[in-house]
Nucleic acid binder design. Structure first.
Lengths: 187, 187, 187, 187
DNA sequence: TATGAATGAGGATTCATTCAT
DNA sequence: CATGAATGAATCCTCATTCAT
């Protein structure tokens, strides 16, 4: 992948995350990426396509971070920790990605493919939750969607705190959060 | 307050919530409010002022809903339920308000006053949490900001599920959620 | 019809005729029409629609000038004169219209409707020619299309000469041209 | 002359004829010519120079086709046939050249030299007409410019018909057209 | 007071031209 | 020589805002 294409994508991720798609101008992306405005159109058909490409890319990266070293043969509790801690860590290192994904999942600019990719990301999480419910370690009173919503919603807001400096992520806090969120969903 | 001013505000709340401030045009607000575009400028100096006015108004409404019948003389557990269940109910009846507040709290279009109002809303919640920590019913291992983030983040994502139809709010579910989220923050 | 809409159309006719559609910028039309550039989009969806509207309008005016006082009950020779002299006169008074029509009939920017309108204009002429052929006053050796082409082509080039000042239209010349062109197509 | 230069010119002739100078992009010419866009600037200073070069070249080719085997020592009638039939044949084999010349003679992109070349092409024709008038075989009532306009205008429109398939050129039709157009200008 | 036509600054996108490879 | 990636000026079009009615 070209150097310029990559820097355009990074600039777009940062700017779309911070200002939103509609609040970000193409020349602004160009400046942030240190390329000419016209160059963006050499790599992306238009601004909307750029959004979809980076959304798909970042969701894929998130999914890969979930799946990397996933403890398929360990307990649901450990699987939850893998996902939760992985998500917190991911959002520390890729704050803009998480903000981008969270704030644009309902964007009217998303293509069907991008929406589909998002669904498949959720499906992966649902599968784990479902397994936990069958083992009766995750509470059946809570619908799957609620479990994902609580966890993901909490992480996003926590990430904002970490990024804004209101909160500092320590290993202790990470452990506490993992424990607390598990309490919120377990039987 | 004039009838037209009110319908402009309602239209703006709905549209800013759904499409974001930058994705919403003034003529679109005018059409949704069934007024002429020029009329909006009779009541609001400009689009940015309109955002700030409705943000302040909706945050005030939320704060009032928190404070209304607040059980100051009951247990922290009951106070939490009042806030949590109140927030869920508020977001059921005022989905757009919650989305508006959640998605625009970091907007670059907010005035200092609006940011200040947001802070004061958080301060109120922090006060309750602080009291809980002093009574040792809320876990000291969790920073106040983390507790607010977890709760608010969870509610926002849950509200999206309720609104999107993926989840239906029953009294039972509400009770379960209240219980679960309390488990996430209590000692 | 609004004053501004009309002046936009007049400006566009003049400019599209002189510089061609692609060589004419919207701000140039706006300046020529003494309106703001944005105003053009209040009346015409886009530049292409503007072209189609004026093409249809000018072709209609030409057709009406053909049909006005058309001597249906006179000889083909007189009918030819009516059309030929009418066309020359029309192109004197509406030089830009004729240039617009002539230079944009094969434009890739024309809508199906506009192409259709052009065809119907030709159909009217063909009908007259056909009648002349049946009366054996117009030469059968010449296909209808050739007759229309010769006459229309000649008029367009003559109009350029009149407009450029290389030729001056007198009543005598008009009569001569009518006589000569008739000789070119009659038996 | 380089192979590439020639294919650039051929591509430009075809595209400028079909889409007009302003409607033709340099990359489009490059693609049609199967060369890189930058290569065009190796042979032509800029797009405008390219237009002028091909205009001059095609007008020269037309002039040469007029002058080749020109029957200087035959009758004006035969000279007219040579020119008229030559022009029709030229426009059959070089439709794009004729369209290019016809549609760009008044272009604002032409250099003085190109305009001058066009004038000299007309001058050659005028000379013949003038001779015909002196011999009183061409009608003095018709100004020279009118004669050229009628003939050239007719040929251009006829060429469009032949090219569009509405008319098919046969030897008979060619003879008829020659005869008819001569009738239009002769005494 | 209410309107919506009018405006022009600003944003998305294209394309003539350059230049490093 | 040839290329095509890169550029930014210029183009089409939108929309926040104004103002005459």
């Amino acid at each position: 992948m070209s150097d310029k294409q990559e820097s355009i994508k990074q600039a777009a991720i940062a700017l779309f995350a911070k200002r939103g798609f509609d609040g970000t101008t193409v020349p602004l992306v160009a400046e942030e990426a240190s390329v000419g405005a016209g160059t963006i159109y050499r790599y992306f058909e238009n601004k909307e396509v750029l959004l979809n490409v980076i959304m798909q890319g970042e969701m894929l990266r998130l999914e890969q971070s979930f799946k990397e070293n996933f403890p398929y043969d360990r307990s649901i509790r450990e699987q939850f920790s893998h996902l939760f801690i992985g998500l917190i860590r991911f959002s520390q290192e890729n704050f803009e990605s998480i903000m981008l994904i969270n704030s644009h999942t309902t964007s009217r600019h998303l293509s069907d493919q991008t929406k589909c990719d998002y669904t498949s990301l959720l499906t992966f999480l649902s599968t784990i939750v479902e397994a936990g419910r069958e083992q009766e370690v995750i509470d059946r009173d809570l619908p799957i969607e609620a479990i994902v919503a609580i966890t993901f919603g909490a992480v996003v807001e926590l990430a904002k705190c970490f990024n804004g400096g209101e909160l500092t992520l320590t290993e202790d806090l990470l452990e506490t959060l993992d424990e607390k969120l598990w309490r919120a969903i377990s039987t």
